[in-house]
Write a protein that binds this DNA or RNA. Structure first.
Lengths: 123, 123, 123, 123
DNA sequence: GTGGTCTAGACCACC
DNA sequence: GTGGTCTAGACCACT
């Protein structure tokens, strides 16, 4: 469990945002299964040598975005799908379209992009 | 030609980076055609009430990334495709894969994602 | 530490480029070890009687090329290997091939050229 | 014969130097055979829309370095090998060593560099 | 007119 | 102390 997430001091974003995004990735990718327990605030605070309040805030952001839920007295847990805000979905679609636009500009054809989507980019 | 790009003072990123990204988007989307002239350094500096050095730096970053080129005494111009570094392509593919992963996590199926690629998401 | 790099006013290249190349050579040759600290911006500016902005730009170019990294509040440091862009590698190979071609034109045989590669040219 | 050499207006070096280097490459690579006639001054001046004096100076530099010779009333011709100054040879060896040093820094091993020297880099 | 370089000096965030 | 950004303004070379 050690080293699940790390902090990059060169990253200009606030620490809580780095943490929230790290957990978001882990949950989305399946590395952390639905209803699996996230590290406790105190545990993570000690491991990263960071103020527990910062961890708290990261978990708060994560929960507000629908990627986790907290059970008072038990801990924080990875959420199930479909709980996420519709605005996040629109944001992702918009980001997808722009990434695709730039890839096409760089000469990558539609067929190749399709392979990345189906997760068969390396075949 | 007025108002091609704007500056957001609430955006934590430096001005030159905001500018560079704005122009990158305009070029990549085709809003600025290849070899089309970008606003002159002084012109844009006056229009945005910003120091010419800051504009210069934005254009320098843009050129370094392969999205434009400068001709001393003439101006800055939108670059042609394929000039961009291979590392940028890898970065985009990686970003695409992560966005797709999260969309799938949200319950969007592969078929629907495919429609966004071909630019037919609204059909 | 004094006199690590110098500026040649007769050199037509801009100062920041001379500086960046000087440091690149020092790093590549091993004269500056990986993660070793480079002179601070202000220190070097005073020593060379040059504006700090010019030093900054040199360090920025050096970092963009992958030969160093900066830690805000700490300093600039020599980078580790393998961080350099693939395009630089191709550039070097191409330059190597042309140099070899001209040496062979001058009558230097392949065996002698091989000795320069292994650093045994003086044996 | 058209388009053997070109001028890059973005290149900060003087035109005559660009021309001299272009011809040097062509001669060294064998693209122009020994004793083959180079384009006439007037012909090249017209083709490149450049002052004939500039072409003259380029040919003068080329000859001074031993890569060509001129026959008054006949033209300029590619030189034979071994005519080049010893200082040029030392310059090339020094350049070769530095290129090799940087390639090794980038993780390219000695064996691979050897292949580039024997012209078998693509095998 | 254009871009490019450089200086002088201020202000910020971080350690 | 450190690097990073930005401003104001000068000077150059080139078109």
């Amino acid at each position: 469990m050690t080293g699940l997430v790390t902090i990059n001091s060169r990253d200009p974003r606030p620490i809580y945002e780095q943490l929230a995004e790290s957990f978001r990735r882990l949950i989305v990718s399946g590395a952390i299964a639905p209803d699996e327990r996230l590290p406790s605030v105190r545990e993570l605070a000690q491991q990263l040598a960071i103020n527990p309040n910062t961890i708290q805030r990261a978990y708060r952001e994560l929960e507000a975005a629908g990627y986790s839920y907290s059970v008072p007295g038990k801990g924080n847990f990875a959420g199930a799908r479909h709980e996420v805000d519709e605005s996040r979905r629109r944001e992702l679609v918009s980001q997808l379209e722009e990434t695709v636009r730039e890839l096409r500009y760089l000469g990558v054809d539609e067929e190749e992009i399709g392979r990345y989507i189906s997760g068969k980019g390396d075949e």
